[in-house]
Simulated scan of single mutants.
Amino acid sequence: MESSAQPLAVEALSVRFGGLAALSDVSFTVEPGSLHALIGPNGAGKSTCLNVLSGVYAASAGSVRYGSHELTRLRPHRIAALGVARTFQNIALSPRVSVLDNLLVARHRLMRSGFLADGLKLPRARRERAEHEARVREIAELLGLTELERPVGTLSYGTRKRVELARALCAEPELLLLDEPVAGMVRDESAAMADAISRARAELGISVLLVEHDMTFVMGMADRVTVLDFGKRIADGTPATVQRDPDVLKAYLGAAA
C-alpha cells in the first residue's frame, strides 16, 4: 500500500529536567513509509525523545514537525488526532477485558455516536459499532490475533504485546511510535512481532519510529538508524553504516573500533 504518512522532522531537540540535559540538539527525519530506529545505551534519551514526540514531555528547545504541524506545544490527544499513535515499554491493556474490547477502545475517537449513544445501544450507534468491530477484526487478523473473545490477561506475554500493537493500529495512525516492542521476549515471540510490524507497514502504509535494544531485531528491519548517547546524536544512517561507526562501537563496547 502506498504511504499516506508525512515526514517527521526532529530539529535541534533539547530536553532539560532541572540541571540535567536528557536530550541535547538532537535532529533526525523519519521519511514517509519508512521504519526508523532510535537506539543507544541505557540512559541515552531514547524514551525521552518518544515522550516529546507524543506530547508527554515538553521540549526545552528545538522543533518537532509532522508534515506542516508543529508538535512540541500540542497535548497528547491533539497529536493523536493528527495520526500519531504509540505503544509503551510496559503493557497498558485491561487484563480482565477481552482482546476485542481492548482493541475497540482505540476506535472511540473515530466514532461519531459517542459513549452515551453506544451505551444506550441506539440503532445508529449499533451500526457504527458493527462497522468499527469489523475493522478491528481485520487488523487483528493482519497481526495473527485470533482469540478475540479471550481476556487479555490469559494470553502469553508476546501475544499481549501484539495486542497492544494492534490497539495502536486500530486508531488508524499514519505514524506509529514503538517503545521497545520486543523487550523481554523469547526468540519466537520476537519473530512474531517482527512479522506483525512488517505486515502493518506493508498493508497500512504507515511510518514507524521504534526504540529498541535488540540489535538483531533493529538491524534486520530498519531502513535508517539514529544513535543517541548521553542525550546527543552520535550517528545517523543505514544499519550497515551505523554498525561500522567508531563512535557507535565506542558507546556500546566502551572502546574505539
Rank of each mutant, 00 (worst) to 15 (best):
E2V: 13
A5K: 02
L8V: 01
A9S: 15
E11D: 11
L13H: 03
F17A: 07
F17W: 09
G19S: 08
A21L: 06
A22N: 05
E31R: 12
G33A: 06
S34E: 14
S47T: 14
T48D: 09
C49E: 09
S54P: 02
V56P: 09
A58D: 08
A61K: 11
S63D: 00
S63C: 00
V64N: 01
E70R: 14
R75I: 09
P76Y: 03
L82H: 10
G83E: 05
G83C: 05
V84M: 02
N90G: 13
V97W: 09
A106Y: 03
R109W: 01
R109E: 10
L110S: 09
R112W: 10
R112S: 14
R112P: 15
S113P: 07
G114S: 03
G114M: 04
L116Q: 00
L116T: 12
E128M: 11
E131M: 12
E133R: 15
E133G: 12
R135A: 08
V136Q: 07
I139L: 13
R150C: 05
V152A: 15
L155N: 09
Y157V: 04
T159Q: 14
E172N: 11
P173F: 01
L175M: 04
P181E: 05
V182W: 11
M185W: 11
M185V: 11
V186H: 11
A192Q: 15
A196S: 14
A196H: 08
R199L: 11
L204E: 14
V208D: 06
V211P: 02
V211Q: 04
E212R: 00
T216N: 14
M221K: 07
A222Q: 07
A222F: 02
D223C: 05
V225Y: 00
F230H: 13
G231V: 11
I234Q: 00
Q243V: 00
Q243I: 02
A251C: 06
A251M: 01
G254A: 08
A256D: 01
A257E: 08
